[in-house]
């Protein structure tokens, strides 16, 4: 718990320091007096942007997200075991090993299916 408090202090300072820079910038920066409509237009190489940038994106990113969930869950399961590998000994190793083998079988299947090909 003690370390938690220290961490909290650390985080607060981190936010404060970066926030301070913005506050200082707010004090020091110049303010435009003329209102130029072009100024606030979205930059797109000097052209008028066609439509908003908030568009639907390709489903490929969904596949990556799925993979991430799978593997991150795996590592989440591995973490508690990682600190007690020695204590868990061979039994733990077998248990975790079989888990990893099943997961990697899935990886092999996915890569053979071409799911890891980005394009």
């Amino acid at each position: 718990m003690t370390a938690g408090l220290a961490l909290l202090a650390f985080l607060l300072i981190a936010v404060a320091v970066s926030g301070t820079l913005l506050v200082v910038a707010k004090l020091l920066r110049v303010v435009s007096t003329k209102h130029e409509p072009l100024k606030e237009q979205t930059y797109e190489c000097g052209e008028v942007p066609s439509g908003l940038a908030w568009v639907r994106f390709h489903a490929r990113y969904y596949v990556v997200a799925l993979f991430f969930v799978l593997f991150d869950i795996e590592t989440a399961f591995l973490l508690p075991w990682a600190t007690i590998v020695k204590e868990a000994g061979a039994t733990g190793l077998v248990a975790v090993g079989s888990f990893v083998v099943v997961l990697m079988l899935g990886w092999v299947w996915a890569s053979r299916k071409g799911a890891l090909q980005w394009q």
């Binding site: 004090l27 020091l28 110049v30 003329k34």
Partner: peptide, 8 residues
């Protein structure tokens, strides 16, 4: 300048 001012 006429284009901007410096509040501080």
């Amino acid at each position: 300048g006429t284009n901007f001012r410096h509040p501080l």
